[in-house]
């Protein structure tokens, strides 16, 4: 139970940590000042949310590991985020596509997590969802602007959605920890979110004059700690400070 709760929290937190790091990479590199600030603000929100999660995870462990140890000092195989969030910032369309495909899920997930029997998780969800509503507005807006924009922006937005689509199915896979937490009334049954997710995504894509990809085979593995080659590089940068100057605090 304790072990499963710990893993469950990591699954939630790692998604936001890794996505937050990807968005943070755009600091000073956004396509315009406004989008640069927006992306780093999203990143800050996500980091804030995971901090509450890792503090809670540290409390559950009950040993001398801190939130920083858990967030920063695990090895690649111990990160439980989905593959979607670790995909690189190939161009702005990929940044927005990844954010959008995650935001739709994140919003549905947090809506349900607010009902968790675990009051700490419910409170974190209740706090986070207010911020995530803004994220979802921002990314949906940009999918529409790029999709329904110029020939070039349309083509690149479509390419990003096509490229990232293969990582969407994993969002709805249940791990052992998931199943246990659902049974306990603590976790969210992600399988039940799938239909609404694809409907909501299709709604925005259609409005953006984009095609909804048709795909039979999907990538998976992140939830088991088996990642794409991109995560190692991301972690090297994320963990650099903590490893070079041990015991730094957030």
């Amino acid at each position: 139970m304790k072990e499963n709760l710990y893993k469950y929290i990591l699954g939630i937190a790692d998604n936001s940590l890794i996505l937050g790091q990807r968005m943070g990479e755009l600091c000073g590199h956004g396509p315009s000042l406004e989008t640069d600030i927006a992306c780093t603000n999203l990143s800050l929100d996500l980091f804030g949310q995971v901090r509450s999660c890792y503090q809670y995870a540290a409390k559950i462990l009950g040993d001398d590991r801190t939130e920083d140890d858990i967030a920063m000092l695990r090895k690649e195989r111990d990160y439980l985020n989905v593959l979607l969030v670790e995909q690189p910032n190939r161009d702005f369309a990929y940044v927005i596509g990844r954010q959008f495909l995650f935001d739709v899920y994140h919003h549905l997930f947090l809506t349900e997590l607010q009902k968790s029997k675990d009051l700490t998780l419910a409170a974190i969800a209740n706090k986070s969802i207010k911020e995530v509503s803004y994220h979802l507005r921002f990314s949906s807006d940009w999918v529409k602007r790029l999709g329904d924009g110029t020939e070039e922006s349309h083509a690149r937005m479509q390419e990003a959605i096509d490229g990232l689509w293969t990582y969407t199915d994993e969002l709805f896979h249940q791990t052992e920890a998931d199943k246990e937490m659902v049974a306990e009334g603590i976790g969210v049954d992600v399988t039940k979110l799938k239909e609404t997710y694809y409907n909501n995504v299709a709604g925005v894509l259609t409005e953006a004059t984009l095609q909804v990809p048709e795909l039979k085979y999907f990538q998976k593995g992140g939830k088991q700690g088996i990642h794409t080659e991109h995560l190692g590089y991301l972690l090297a940068e994320l963990q650099y400070m903590q490893r070079a100057y041990p015991n730094m605090e957030w």
């Binding site: 600030i37 927006a38 999203l42 800050l44 929100d45 507005r137 921002f138």
Partner: peptide, 13 residues
Amino acid sequence: MVSQFGSTACKAQ
């Protein structure tokens, strides 16, 4: 509105 996100996360420009 210039941007939904401003100088800090709680503000828009």
